[in-house]
Simulated assay, not measured.
Amino acid sequence: MSTRVGPEGPVPTLAFVESPVQLLNTLEWAHHRPPEALTVVVLPPADPMTRGQLRRMAELARDAGHRVRWEEARGGTGPLRTVRGLAPLLRGAPRVVVGDPFSRYVHLLLTLTRAPELVVVDDGTATMEFVGQLAAGERLVRWHRHGGRPGPRDLAFAPVTATARRRLLPGPGRTVEVFSALPLAAVPEGVRTTANEFGWTRSRFGPPRLSEGADLVGTSLVETGVVDPVRYAAAVRSLARAHGATRYFAHRRERPEKLHALAAATGLEIRRPDLPLELIARRGPIGRTVLSFPSTVVHTLPLALAGTGARVAVCDIDPEWLTAGASPRARGFLAGVTDTAREVHRLRSVCAG
């Protein structure tokens, strides 16, 4: 579909992002297409690490020629003010790109648009769960909360979520695309899928210098209540010792006290990246071996590092590491992340213990 033209020129595509990874994948989507007017609307959370990475990614988006609109959309009158300000743009946009189809904020914004094209870009491994739930007609709920009862806020927001879910399916005069680096087993009928091969990342950064030894990628599975913190620390210590890892790239949601404890127990140098790891790895230096627990990077780093000589290895989550409060879906979902990465990217498996 051609770009819509209004009285003041081309009407921009709107992209709504809440995390650095979503913004990175929006840039990858734009790079994959013919040049067009794109306005990226950043809806930052309160977390300072996420906000910092979003600001750095926003600079890269501007450097790539896109307009960036930063909206303080949370707390107080923020949501109402933001929705009122975005409504005219939403009504005129020829296409809308979203990074988090589970977000209540995105659900609310989707009720205001009649864009003939909707695009979902990766928000990590959650994309796999989203597509599966959409295909099965299930309620949209993040995998680590799967199986829990809807809370009062979920029930109050249910009509909005139901409308948004309908918008995320193809219909008369509306196409839906999923732009993803992940293997998607079940895709709803009529939804178009496009492979994200990280062409923008590889053209913009690197190739990196490879350092000897291994680097270890952190995960926020402890923070989300899925993995026991003591078990996690023991696994990190075991992997570092067995593979000669010297650096630990922290997930932006990992708590400082947890990272201090890991550094003291393992001797690892803790790095808190200011950009998504795919970009950090391409800038280098990066270890010849990159060790990771189940996470998005076991699918994205092999693409970002293609042709560099760096290898990604994956460590499964032992079921004994899971907390008593972990979702019943957690074990199968995490195993699926690593199994598909081994199948698609031929990743080596490593064990902690």
Rank of each mutant, 00 (worst) to 15 (best):
R142I: 07
R241V: 11
S292Y: 02
L14W: 00
L118E: 03
L140P: 01
L303V: 04
S292G: 02
L169Y: 10
L322H: 09
A352Y: 00
P45E: 10
E278R: 00
P328D: 12
Y232N: 03
I286T: 04
V121T: 07
G353T: 06
R252F: 04
V312I: 11
D154N: 14
F102R: 00
R252T: 01
Q53W: 12
R142S: 11
H66N: 04
H345K: 05
A214C: 09
T340N: 08
A265V: 06
A87V: 15
A306F: 05
G99T: 06
L108W: 13
P20R: 06
D154K: 12
G284P: 03
A87E: 13
G52A: 13
A73K: 06
A58W: 04
S220V: 08
V337G: 01
A46M: 14
D123G: 14
L303A: 05
H260M: 15
T163H: 09
A281C: 06
P94E: 01
T3S: 11
G244S: 04
G213S: 12
L109P: 03
L24V: 02
P7D: 15
G336N: 06
L239A: 12
R74W: 12
Q22V: 15
G336H: 07
V191K: 08
L182A: 13
G244R: 03
P256H: 08
E189D: 13
E138G: 06
L279I: 13
S180C: 14
V344N: 08
H32F: 09
R56W: 06
F130C: 15
G99R: 05
G6W: 03
V42M: 00
E18P: 06
L140E: 03
L112Q: 07
E138Q: 14
V121A: 06
T13H: 08
G332N: 07
G309W: 13
A37L: 05
G171Y: 13
E343Q: 10
A158S: 13
V290S: 00
V176E: 05
V314R: 05
A326K: 02
P328T: 11
E269F: 06
R283D: 12
L305H: 02
S292H: 01
C351T: 08
R55D: 09
R145F: 15
V236N: 01
E278L: 01
A164W: 02
A264L: 07
P150G: 09
A61R: 02
A64Y: 01
E223K: 07
R342A: 03
S211L: 10
A352M: 02
R331Y: 08
L301C: 00
E8I: 15
G213Y: 08
S220D: 08
P302N: 11
R283F: 09
C351Y: 11
S349Q: 10
A135R: 09
A352W: 00
R272E: 12
Y248Q: 05
P150S: 12
L169H: 13
P302S: 07
T3C: 11
R288G: 14
L38Q: 04
V350Q: 00
V312R: 01
A87H: 15
E8N: 13
D123R: 05
R237W: 01
K258E: 10
D154P: 05
A261I: 07
R33P: 02
V236E: 01
V176S: 06
D215F: 04
G309C: 14
A61G: 08
L210T: 09
L221E: 03
P88C: 03
H31Y: 15
V344W: 10
L27S: 04
R282Y: 04
A264W: 10
G225I: 10
L259T: 02
W29V: 02
R74C: 07
D63H: 05
T338D: 01
